[in-house]
């Protein structure tokens, strides 16, 4: 290592305060000078909704809408899940890496037979997209078998009854669909869609954030942290400014 390298290395720079004269200069190494957004860090486009890529089957779409609008119905607190774009949100998610199960281990169990016991919960080899494709058809089949009608045509009370039964583990669906797990998946996704940033398609017009009083993607609350017991009236803010 020559003198220059020694001087410029980070360690020497840290110790440089004690060095007089010309040594009192330091250059940063290993930190990129450029801070421009690179292609691999670019977020995807904003989900505007309306153009379904996954829920293209009318019956599937109607079944899911019927479920979501019972999980989050339209009422005094705000619009329903479908009105707030949650189907658009989920459609976009299922069309992407989430739908592919990109984050999941999907190679199958090494020792088949007791994976549920080992993992403590039901295990799936299907991707989320496959689970919806299968689960929505199974819900429709269940309604046809038990009520002689389409699922979407059932009364709100009847839908609640089925969903409650699934949640409690009392109802499994035709074709080997585990009712409780599918219910949990739908509930989870409905919440995510209703409460995620509007750029992902749900939470349209900040319906979800307004309902719970969440001010959104703000960076810093120091201006407010000392203001107690007052309505700060903070308007929700999206990651992407809308005006």
């Amino acid at each position: 290592m020559n003198r220059r390298e020694a001087l410029f290395s980070i360690g020497a720079a840290a110790a440089g305060a004690g060095i007089a004269g010309r040594a009192s200069a330091a250059e940063l190494r290993g930190v990129p000078a450029a801070t421009a957004q690179t292609a691999d860090h670019m977020p995807g486009p904003i989900v505007r909704g309306g153009d379904f890529k996954v829920f293209t089957d009318q019956t599937d779409h109607a079944t899911l809408k019927a479920v979501f609008d019972r999980l989050i119905p339209s009422d005094d607190h705000g619009p329903s899940a479908s009105e707030a774009g949650v189907l658009d949100f989920l459609d976009a998610q299922l069309a992407g890496p989430y739908g592919d199960g990109a984050a999941y281990y999907l190679e199958g169990p090494l020792q088949p037979g007791h994976e549920e016991e080992v993992m403590g919960q039901k295990q799936f080899l299907e991707t989320p997209r496959q689970r919806y494709a299968k689960g929505l058809k199974a819900l429709e089949q269940y309604a046809q078998d038990n009520d002689g009608a389409s699922f979407a045509a059932l009364s709100p009370d009847r839908i609640d009854e089925i969903l409650t039964g699934m949640e409690a583990g009392r109802i499994d669906l035709p074709g080997g669909v585990f009712g409780q797990a599918f219910f949990e998946l739908m509930l989870q996704n409905a919440r995510e869609g209703y409460l995620s940033d509007p750029i992902y398609g749900g939470n349209r017009d900040f319906a979800g954030w307004t309902m719970i009083g969440f001010p959104g993607a703000r960076y810093d609350y120091r201006a407010y942290v000392d203001r107690h017991n007052e309505d700060l009236a903070l308007a929700p803010v999206s990651l992407i400014p809308s005006n």
């Binding site: 940063l28 930190v31 450029a34 957004q37």
Partner: peptide, 16 residues
């Protein structure tokens, strides 16, 4: 605003 920037890293101001 478009491409970002980085402050210089110097003996007297090291945050960069």
């Amino acid at each position: 605003m478009l491409n970002g920037a980085r402050a210089p890293y110097t003996e007297g101001a090291r945050t960069a």
